[in-house]
Amino acid sequence: MAYSTEQLDQLLDRYFAGQTSLSEEKKLRQWLNSPELPIAYEMYTQLFDIWEEKKAEHLDDAFFQSFEQALHRQVQPLTPASSRGRLRSLFWLRTAAAVLLLATAGYWMWSEQAAPTGNTIDWAQYEPETPEEAFRVYRNAMQKLSGDIRQGSARAAQKVDRLHDAGAYFK
């Protein structure tokens, strides 16, 4: 094994605290994928797998970003005086965070399977094939919008005029 569990712990803590660099994250990924990985760490591998699968689908990037940010926000204010205490609380936080993420990811997968049509619509299938076609659609949409806005304003103006006319009787 090219790394110690202590190193792995340290890197995981830093990862969940949002302090890892891209190369460190890559290293962490490699370690988690290595065949010698102790069983206790397998849940992190699963977590990363699901994470990447989701990223590949481009579905929940924004969600995962907010999720990570939220995690960091929750983790950072924790600065107990003793470093041992800090490490221990980080360990529990890390575990809790991982369990929570796994549970959430599991729920998503379950809900996706349970309802194949899901809550999200696959909009890509409705896209025009060329930018030229898209431009025509967009232009028509803007013309419709413009026409409706103009019509709305004209009606509002008419009503105001009628009010003015009515006002003339009471002079």
Binding site: F63, F67, L71, W92, A96, A97, L100, N119
Partner: peptide, 24 residues
């Protein structure tokens, strides 16, 4: 802390879902 994490994440999840699904 775990409680905080739970409530924070639940709130966030609801908020994100809200934004994503308002149109859909």
């Amino acid at each position: 802390v775990v409680g905080l994490l739970f409530s924070g994440l639940n709130g966030l999840q609801a908020q994100v879902a809200d934004n994503l699904n308002a149109i859909d």
